[in-house]
Amino acid sequence: MMRGLFAAIGFLTRLPVPARVFDGARSPSAQLAWYPAVGLLIGGLLWCLGWLLSGAPPLLAAALLLAGWVVLTGALHLDGLADSADAWVGGMGDRERTLAIMKDPRSGPIGVTAVVLVLLLKFAALASLPHPSAVLVVAPLLGRAALTFAFMTTPYVRSAGIGSGLVGESPLACTAALLLAVVLSVLTGWHGVRALVAALLVFAWWRWACRRRLGGMTGDTCGALTELTEMAVLVAWAL
């Protein structure tokens, strides 16, 4: 059980974990139910950073929080966002062309623009809020819960992709993890409820778009889902 947790931490963050958690014959899908827990861990670390920055000027605090957020996750999901944006525009509605562009490691102007806009909105939302704020926990929590929900409900279209091994996790464990994420969000009050609604709307829209264009999700579109969810939660909270 704990091996799955450490594997999820090692994959979704840059926190050091024992290399042996990735060895052996156990399926990587054992980590999927732990994704919301990893989001909670990320959020806890960000909350601590927000507490340390509580006396700093708002713009500086927001910039340092966002920088810490990116460093902690290794910009993993930002890379997926950039690839998805490039592919969505460059693919011109064609499935195979879209998938081919996603495999290109280079980022074009559309991908760079998408990353800049998402980071800008995150920064503006963080600068608009007092710190520490519960949204620092809720945003990464719902961002990783969205990944679990996506793999539970959406086909994965690359048989040899980075997320192919995540398919097949126990529905019971994943459902329990998702329910916990919902409960924790609601317990933060009306801000949390509004953030949860925003996250669900983003999930429904992006899942529909991916099913329509690709027939399912890829690792890149899942990364984009996390970034878009976090952005929506921060903006909804700040508004």
Rank of each mutant, 00 (worst) to 15 (best):
A209L: 15
S128W: 01
E227M: 14
M2S: 13
D23P: 04
L32Y: 10
G44N: 04
W237K: 08
T226R: 12
S107V: 12
V70D: 13
L40W: 08
A61V: 13
W205V: 15
G163W: 13
L99E: 06
D23F: 12
L72N: 12
A87F: 04
C48P: 06
V197Q: 06
P140I: 10
I101H: 14
V186F: 10
W51Q: 02
W205H: 15
M217L: 15
V89L: 13
Y35V: 01
L32F: 11
P130L: 02
L142K: 08
D94Y: 02
R26K: 12
D79Q: 01
D83F: 11
P57L: 04
W208S: 13
A195G: 15
E169I: 07
P105D: 07
D220Q: 05
L200D: 10
L141F: 08
V137H: 00
V71T: 03
A37C: 09
F11W: 14
L184Q: 10
F149D: 12
P140G: 07
V112F: 00
L136I: 00
S128K: 02
R20T: 08
A145F: 07
G24R: 00
G55S: 02
R3L: 11
W205I: 15
K122L: 06
A25Q: 14
A139Q: 05
P155E: 04
L59R: 07
T73E: 15
T13Q: 04
A125F: 05
P155N: 05
P171D: 09
L46Y: 04
T226P: 07
A114E: 06
A100P: 08
M102G: 03
A75H: 09
E227F: 10
E227V: 07
L99W: 03
I9V: 15
Y35Q: 04
L46V: 09
I162C: 07
L141R: 01
A177K: 09
R97D: 14
M231V: 12
L49F: 03
G143P: 05
G10F: 08
L179N: 08
A127E: 01
I162D: 07
T175A: 15
P28D: 00
V38E: 05
I42A: 01
V112T: 02
G10L: 08
V182T: 13
L172Q: 12
L142F: 09
L172S: 09
Y156M: 07
S107D: 07
L53I: 09
L184H: 11
V70R: 13
Q31G: 15
G108V: 04
L45C: 02
G163E: 11
F6V: 01
L147D: 05
G163P: 11
P105V: 08
S133Q: 05
L196E: 11
E96T: 08
P58D: 02
P16D: 05
G44F: 06
A145W: 12
G161C: 00
R211H: 11
V70C: 13
A146E: 09
A176K: 09
F203M: 11
F151P: 00
R144G: 06
S159W: 15
V182M: 11
R95M: 03
G68Q: 06
F22R: 02
G163I: 09
F22K: 01
E169V: 13
A56Y: 04
V197P: 06
A134S: 11
G143V: 02
A145P: 07
D94L: 10
M1E: 14
L40E: 12
V38R: 02
A173E: 14
G39E: 03
L76V: 00
L72R: 06
V235C: 06
Y156E: 04
V167R: 14
L147A: 05
G4A: 00
